[in-house]
């Protein structure tokens, strides 16, 4: 962990013993995901998400640029995952720690590489002009599991964001219509990937884990900061509602039996479905609110 938060042996033993008895420090069961709280802001593409005490703010912005030369039919999509010392003093501004790099790559694989946002729909004039969508994730408060909350936040914000409507006139010029003139256009989201992170704990010795046959390793879903600091490794599964695994990332750590990984993926699927529904409902509720407001103004 960056900038060494040293955890005392007493805390370590206490945590491990409680996990052996199936108890977590915040009262959850080992396979329980924290409650997700989604707050949609006033402008399009601005979302605040809370996962327990972990808190992020996501902002989506769009501008028109020239596409890459080797991909003239695709738009651009960038995700910025810089963590500032606001989230916790562990994170230094300017330098990227190992954990930040992993989170950045994770979000990139889960959202960008999996084509959650359809890049071809961002093309305006092939080879000349396209939309460049930018997602900025602001990490406000750290209590474990930045990976999962980032994914939820980015997807929610992308689903909420609407880009200004454009028309191309005879001179191949692009006219961008302001939001109050013409109804803005939502983005084309092909699927909703949700990340679920599992943290591992070893109740026995290392030798037992590597050489032994017992599968006594403890697995918790959605670790808090205390659990993350003490865990011996983690596994992040990204799934969508179509029963597709978008990415799996188990960077070393405790060795886990293949069957246990299958169990984790089934649990992750359930959680992913639930959260996807929650995101969709939040977006729908916000749409309804906006429609009401528009009606009020008209009346």
């Amino acid at each position: 962990m960056p900038k060494g938060i040293d955890v005392s042996n007493v805390a370590k033993d206490f945590e491990l013993e409680s996990l052996k008895q199936g108890l977590r420090l915040d009262g959850r069961k080992l396979n329980e995901f924290r409650d997700v709280e989604i707050n949609i802001g006033n402008s399009y593409g601005s979302v605040d998400v809370k996962l327990g005490k972990t808190r992020i703010a996501v902002r989506i912005s769009a501008e028109i640029v020239a596409p890459f030369e080797d991909r003239p039919f695709e738009g651009l999509f960038m995700i910025n995952t810089e963590i500032s010392p606001m989230a916790s003093a562990m994170f230094e501004s300017g330098r990227q720690s190992d954990e930040e790099i992993l989170i950045s790559r994770l979000i990139e694989k889960a959202v960008r590489r999996s084509n959650a946002l359809d890049l071809e729909s961002l093309c305006i004039i092939a080879g000349e002009k396209c939309w460049s969508i930018r997602a900025d994730i602001h990490y406000l408060d750290y209590d474990g599991n930045f990976a999962d909350i980032s994914c939820i936040g980015v997807l929610c914000a992308l689903l909420h964001f609407k880009k200004p409507d454009i028309t191309i006139n005879e001179h191949q010029e692009i006219i961008v219509h302001p939001i109050n003139e013409r109804v803005p256009v939502p983005l084309s989201i092909l699927h909703i990937p949700i990340c679920v992170t599992f943290a591992f704990f070893n109740p026995n010795d290392v030798e037992e884990n590597i050489k032994g046959d017992s599968n006594a390793e403890l697995i918790v879903v959605d670790p808090t900061m205390g659990e993350e600091l003490l865990a011996y490794g983690s596994l992040t599964l990204t799934m969508n509602k179509n029963r597709e695994l978008v990415q799996i990332s188990k960077a070393g750590g405790l060795s886990i039996d293949a069957m246990v990984i299958m169990d984790c993926s089934n649990l992750a699927y359930e959680i992913a479905c639930r959260i996807t529904d929650q995101i969709r409902e939040a977006i729908k509720a916000d749409d309804a609110k906006r429609a009401e407001k528009r009606l009020e103004i008209r009346l």
Binding site: K109, R113, S114, N209, I210, K211, D213, L235, M239, R243, E244, L245, V246, Q247, I248, S249, K250, A251, G252, G253, S255, I256, D257, A258, I261, M262, S265, N266, Y269
Partner: peptide, 26 residues
């Protein structure tokens, strides 16, 4: 790890249907 069935490193970067995971792991 060794001759066991315990997995230390697991990485998937593209989409894969969940039903195929077990086969590939085996």
């Amino acid at each position: 790890v060794g001759k066991s069935e315990k997995i230390s490193l697991l990485l998937l970067e593209d989409k894969l249907s969940l039903d195929n995971l077990e086969k590939l792991l085996a």
